[in-house]
């Protein structure tokens, strides 16, 4: 299940939607955070037993605000925000990996909060401000967080990377100076298979206020650190008194 601190998304998640037995596309507009459906249900529109209009299962018109732009789409109500972004808007930075709100590869910001786009319906994102990794920076002008990811080689195959970048962005927006433990917690909702966590935490630490003074961080070319100084979560760990276990409790 999701373990990050900044979800689940508000309102109706895809999972709750499916669990609710609404597989035929029944959606209570009352749960859409007050946003009326764009395709207003005419008087004759079918209604559920509770008296709320039914959308779908066929395509309905929706409007999204993505990276500052209003876009109009016709989508079946079941289409997730992730699929809308990837297959209708060609915004493929967010990846489909686990497709059930566990791995974070699809992380985007919805009104500034990190959400799993695979677990938000596109309908549900109406009225919200959706930001994808494409909005953050370009190859020519990377956001400092992206530049730090590159400097620290916080990526290998790169498939999880946009999700991590967006999760880290949400974390730093919320807490500009996270500790290592807070970084671990803030990014606990994202998985990497190649094993780039070491680079990711260095990149995010660098962006964190204290991390900017990280003595091991040297962007750009040469200057290999001495052995043992390459990986450096330590300076921050030492601040954490709890980690200093009294000798004898564990050694042996």
């Amino acid at each position: 299940m999701t373990s990050r601190g900044d979800d689940p998304p508000r309102g109706l998640s895809r999972r709750a939607f499916l669990r609710g037995g609404a597989a035929a596309g029944v959606l209570s507009t009352g749960l859409l955070r007050g946003v009326p459906p764009v395709e207003a249900a005419p008087a004759a529109a079918p209604k559920s037993e509770a008296g709320v209009p039914i959308l779908g299962p066929g395509p309905v018109a929706i409007k999204l605000r993505v990276n500052g732009q209003e876009v109009a789409l016709r989508l079946e109500p079941r289409v997730t925000l992730l699929d809308a972004l990837r297959t209708r808007l060609e915004l493929t930075g967010a990846k489909k990996v686990c497709d059930r709100g566990t791995c974070g590869a699809c992380t985007v910001l919805l009104d500034g909060k990190a959400v799993y786009a695979c677990s938000v319906l596109a309908l549900e994102a109406q009225g919200g401000d959706v930001r994808t990794v494409e909005s953050l920076g370009s190859v020519e002008r990377m956001h400092p967080l992206q530049a730090a990811f590159v400097d620290h080689d916080a990526q290998q195959c790169g498939f999880c990377t946009p999700g991590f970048v967006m999760a880290a962005k949400a974390l730093l927006d919320r807490n500009p100076s996270p500790s290592l433990a807070e970084i671990h917690h803030g990014l606990a909702g994202n998985f990497c298979r190649c094993g780039t966590y070491a680079g990711i935490r260095r990149a995010v630490l660098q962006l964190a206020e204290a991390g900017a003074a990280n003595p091991d961080y040297a962007p750009g070319l040469p200057g290999a650190p001495e052995p043992g100084e390459i990986e450096n979560p330590r300076p921050r760990r030492q601040k954490n008194k709890k980690r200093k276990k009294p000798r004898g409790t564990g050694d042996g």
Partner: peptide
């Protein structure tokens, strides 16, 4: 030497097409 991967910017910006 330590060279940052050349396709790093494409990956972190989501422009790398898989």
């Amino acid at each position: 030497t330590r060279v940052s991967r050349l396709d790093g910017p494409a990956k972190v910006t989501g422009t790398a097409k898989y």
